[in-house]
Structures are given as structure tokens and as C-alpha cells.
Design a binder for these strands. Structure first.
Lengths: 188, 188, 188, 188
DNA sequence: AATGAATGAGTATTCATTCAT
DNA sequence: TATGAATGAATACTCATTCAT
């Protein structure tokens, strides 16, 4: 029998491994066994640190949404005025989320869970509200909601390789939503 | 022993049952056993009609995306001009998808699969393109993309009970994206 | 992969193996694994044939109580009159149950389950009623109940190696309960 | 970190909690974790105070059998003569054991263990002998054994809700076993 | 053509116990 | 002395799939 090594950071490492695993293989492919092997802890350790797989998933996605909220608040920390806010949004989508592609991958795993389960839905709400609150400092309520909605859609289409929109196009769309440009009458 | 009954609609019934099951319990809760019981066919029938669970899921989601494409083409069939097109979009989100809530539930299950697997991603692409193509008849390319993106985001927020936007607000946002209104200078 | 052999008596063999296993190691030591190994079937076969371990235990104990009821009805089949009935009881305890010691061992496992769970309690009731009904043909109700009660106690004490009573002593006690002998005044 | 509190009664509290737990959920549902939670001691405390789960069970059942022996000796402490002894037995079954229903529930858990393991069997022996010894003071050996046997059976049938006998009927049966009444010739 | 039986890999979880602190 | 952390073996059960009939 192996001697018990005490390992204070283990719980955190398990959560990280779970998150990586979800990004790579989806929630469906994320089992106690797989996560345990990935971070080199024995199987029994999983249910010692977490009451069950659900608690693990919840903690993992909690960490994920916190990370996103941090990205948002970092991008908005020095923003002054609506023009800079639009730039922050574009950078969020085309730089931050792009750099950590997991943001895209993990979101849809989380949403699929959120559809059926309230505790995961809470995480989604918090994440969406974070975006709204940051926008609200620079836009009226209706515009802030509209922009937040657009971000959501852009992320989805980006995640699924379906967004041929460039960052320039996204910027223009966002500026329209924010009424930042005087627009020409549309050419039918 | 039961005599083998020929049952021409069986394959279709299985697909329908699978789709209901996914909506109710998620892909994770959708197994051969569960689907077979739901539509009253023997377990062996599942792998007789489908090479495996993946084929069944793919067929089920194929039916789902076709249904959505039908909703889109129905709404757009009599549309004339951009104003009516916007109305069609609003009705799609606030009436069609709302009436069949499964549209929301199933989308995120599909996206979660699509993130990791190309064949499901193809279905998503087709669905998104259908929206784009309908819009393209009434808007320039950039506006059509922007509107399609907005629809995506609005659907997500709606699915997850996070969209306090009314249909009026959505209509206004869509009209901004389409440059249908002369906009006031923004209130700082 | 091993070729599937169809094996029509398998379900019955599993039940028998479970019963032997309970007798040897107690319900606590009777797991899917252990029973499967004992009768040489793969683990997956256990939950194919039984919805769960409870169904298996219930079937096993059902077979056990039926066996006891058969012993009772065999012993009583040719009984004529109360004297012969008493003999039948003595032979039941000191021959039938003694021959198949499992009768003793299994009873207490069953009772422990019956205390907490109604479906097992039903089996116990049926078993006890079988004894009562056989006795009722030869004795008035009160005597039949009293004798049945005595049988129960004698079985327990016998099972737990605590009954120094000989069959002669048991016979005399039973005859007293049945009022078959004129009794002397007790010596204090 | 919590300072180690000395807690002299802890061992006793654990034993009590174990006994309650066995009564409620059976031996099968009684684990270190469950008992520890019930009496609010840390898990590590269980194997500190007891060498293993077996020692805990043995101590718990030891306490249980002592409790029964106390009930017996209390009931018999003032008994004078066989008539009063019979009354004591009836009160034991219909009052004492009835009041603390755990007596019934726990007995069969103990018997199931006793069937397979000698140390638990010893406890059963002591318990049964206690009854015998009390009876022996007022009856000849054979009657004492017979009465003790009857008590056992009556308890079982009572525990399993299968004893429609009233205390009056039990009293009459016991008096027959004790030869306290001149009996009528049996009605065939 | 159709299916009931079978199966091995995999799932989450519980458990008694050990041990470093 | 006392305990939180750790662990490997075991538990019941689910599953997609195969195959003989």
C-alpha cells in the first residue's frame, strides 16, 4: 500500500483537470476515472474531495465563469466612454476569447447543462449579468442589452466556425446597436 | 414468441422518440434502452435500424435542424422588403421558437456535440446558413450576418431565461442593425 | 470477445447460486460479483436478468419460503388427527429443517430484511401462515397459533445452537400447548 | 484547525449512535461515516476508538443484549412463584419490548450476524440464558426451556407483525407450557 | 427481417482502513 | 491524543454493441 502523501493543492488541481477534460472531450467524456488519471490522483480521491460528479462539474464551471468575468472586468477596467467600450467588446471576442479557445468550447457544454439544471443556470446568469453590468456603465439599458445579446451570438458563431465576420464588421454592427454612428438610409 | 411484425414507420418513430428524449433529458440521458422503451420497440431494433447510437443522434438532430429551417422558410415565404423581414425575425423568435420550446433546449445539446464533432457541426452550419440565406434576400451581406448573429444571441438568452428584452426591444435592435431607422445621436 | 451462448436455465441458476451464497456468507456478503462468479456467468448477466440486487434477493428468498412451505405441506399431507400433527411438527424441526440446515441460516437473514422492508415481510407472512393453516386443520385456532409460535422459537434456538431440548422435550411441550395430555399439577 | 478536545463520553456516544443506526437502517446501512455523522464526531475518531467496524458492532450489540438482560431481571426481581413469573413474561413481551420496539428490530439483525459469527453468537447465548435462568427459579428445567422457547417465537411473530395473539392468549399458552392449569380434554 | 439474450467495459459511489501531522 | 486526508477494493448499475436464432 502506498503511503499517504498529503497534498494541499489537490482539490484545486482536480478542478483544473476537470475543466481541461471538459474542453477536450466534453462533459460526456469527463468521468471520475478520466479526470483522476489526468491529474494523477487515485480514484478514491475524487469522491473524497467532492460529494459527487455534479459537485465537481459545478466547481469546474464556476471557475470557468469566474475566469470569463475576470476577462470582462479586465477589458473594461480602463474604458472611458462608449467608443472605448465598443473596442473592449471587440477585443474580448477577437482576442481574449480567441486566445483561450476553451471559452468557446466550454460555453456550450455549460449551456447544455444549464438548460436542464438550475444550479448551472445560475452560473450562466452571473456570467451574462457581468457583461451587462460592464456595458451598462457606458450605454443606456436597452443598448447594453442589445450589445450583450450580440456578443452572445457572435461567440456562438465563432465557436462553431460559422462567423465569417471580421472584427471590423463586428465593430460596425456593435456601433450600430449603440447608435454611435449616423447611419445612411439602407440601400434596399 | 412474437412473430416478426413488419412496421414500416418504425425507423421514423425511433428518431422522433430520440428527439423527445434529448429535449427532456439531454443527450446524456438518451440511451438505446431509454429510447426503445419510449417508443415501444425492442432493444435489438435499435441497432438493427441504426449502425450505432451516433447515427441515431445524427438523424435526430438532422430532423431537428430541418424543422428549424422549415420554420424559417415559412416565416419568410411571403416577406416583401426589409421591414417585413424584421417582423418575420421577431415572430420567429417570439412566436415560433417560443411555441416549440424544444427549439431552445435542443440547440444547446446540438452545439455541445458540434464543438467536438464535425458531422454535427455540419448540421449547425446548414441551420445557420438557412437563416443567413433568407435574410440575404432582403439585406446586404453585412447586415444579414449581423442580424443572424443577433438572432443567435437572442435565442440563447431566451433559452436560458436571461433575456428581459421584449419583442419591441428586439425589433428596435434589429432595425438598428439593418439601418432601417435614422438614429438619434447617442445620449452619452 | 466470447461468443454469446444462449442458456435458457441461467436465470434459475443465478437464483440458486444467490441462495447458496446467502446461506454461506449472509446477505451482506452476497453481491453481484460473488454470485456471478459462483455460477459462472458474466457480471453483466446479473443485471440483464434482474432489475437490481433487490429483485434477485427477493426471488431468492421467494424460492426459499416456497421450499419451506413445501416441506410443511409434505409433512402434513397424510396427517390424521392431532397426535399425528404433533409428530409432523417434531419431524419438521428435527428432521427436515435439520437436514437442510440452510433453513435455519436463511431464516434470520430474511427476518433482518423483513424488519425494514415490506416486500420481504410479505414472504415471511406467507411462510408463517402456511404453518398456521396446516395446524388449523387439526387444532382449534388458539392452539394452532400457540404451536406455530413455539415452532418459531424452537427454530431460532436451534439455529443459534442454543436449544439443548431434545425432540422428546419438544414433543412434550407441543402436546401441552395442544392440551393433548392431562397434566399433573406442577411441582413448584 | 481545531484543538483536540478531550471528550470522555465520546466512545459511549458512538456506541449509542451505532445502535440507533442499526435499528433504523440495519447493519447493512451502518457504516463508520453514517455513525460518525449521527453523533457528530470526526471520521478518524471511529477507528481511533475502535479497532474496526466489527468491534463497534460487537460493542453495540453487547450494550443491546445487556439492556435486554436488565429488562428481564427487572421484571423478575420481585416475582414470587410461577403465577407471577408468567405475568412477568407477559409484561416483558407486551409492555417492555413493545415500549422499546428496537428490541424487536435489533434482535434479527443480531441473529443474522450470529448465524455466521461466533462472537455475536456468544451475545445471543448470554441473552437467552438470562431468560432461562430467570425462569429456572420458578419452574422445572423442562418447563423453563419450553417457556423460553415460546418467548422467542412470540417475539419474532410480534416483530414481523404476524402475531394476532393477544396477551391473554399468550398467557394461556404459557400457563399450559408451565402446567399451571388443569386442562380440559382437547376438542378433537 | 427482426430480436431476445448476452457481455465486457465503463459509470458513480461507498467503504473500512491507514497514516502523517 | 486526535484527526483530516488519503486510498484501493468493492459496490450496484448502465451502456452500446454483438450474435444466434
Amino acid at each position: 500500500m502506498m503511503v499517504n502523501q498529503i497534498d494541499p493543492g489537490r482539490r484545486e488541481r482536480i478542478i483544473d483537470a476537470a475543466l481541461e477534460c471538459i474542453a477536450e472531450r466534453g462533459v460526456a467524456g469527463t468521468s471520475h476515472r478520466v479526470v483522476a488519471k489526468r491529474c494523477g490522483v487515485p480514484l478514491g480521491s475524487m469522491t473524497y474531495h467532492f460529494t459527487g460528479i455534479d459537485e465537481l462539474l459545478l466547481e469546474a464551471f464556476g471557475r470557468f465563469t469566474r475566469r470569463i468575468r475576470d476577462m470582462v472586468s479586465d477589458r473594461f477596467s480602463h474604458v472611458k466612454g462608449p467608443d472605448e467600450a465598443i473596442e473592449a467588446v471587440v477585443e474580448l471576442i477577437y482576442e481574449d476569447f480567441e486566445t483561450d479557445r476553451n471559452v468557446y468550447l466550454l460555453s456550450y457544454e455549460l449551456y447544455a447543462l444549464a438548460v436542464h439544471r438550475a444550479d448551472f443556470r445560475t452560473l450562466v446568469h452571473e456570467m451574462i449579468e457581468a457583461g451587462y453590468n460592464a456595458l451598462r456603465l457606458h450605454f443606456d439599458e436597452e443598448s447594453a442589452r442589445a450589445i450583450n445579446t450580440y456578443i452572445e451570438g457572435a461567440s456562438t458563431h465563432h465557436a462553431l466556425d460559422t462567423m465569417p465576420q471580421t472584427s471590423d464588421q463586428a465593430r460596425r454592427a456593435l456601433r450600430r446597436l449603440a447608435c454611435l454612428d449616423r447611419l445612411p438610409a439602407p440601400a434596399s
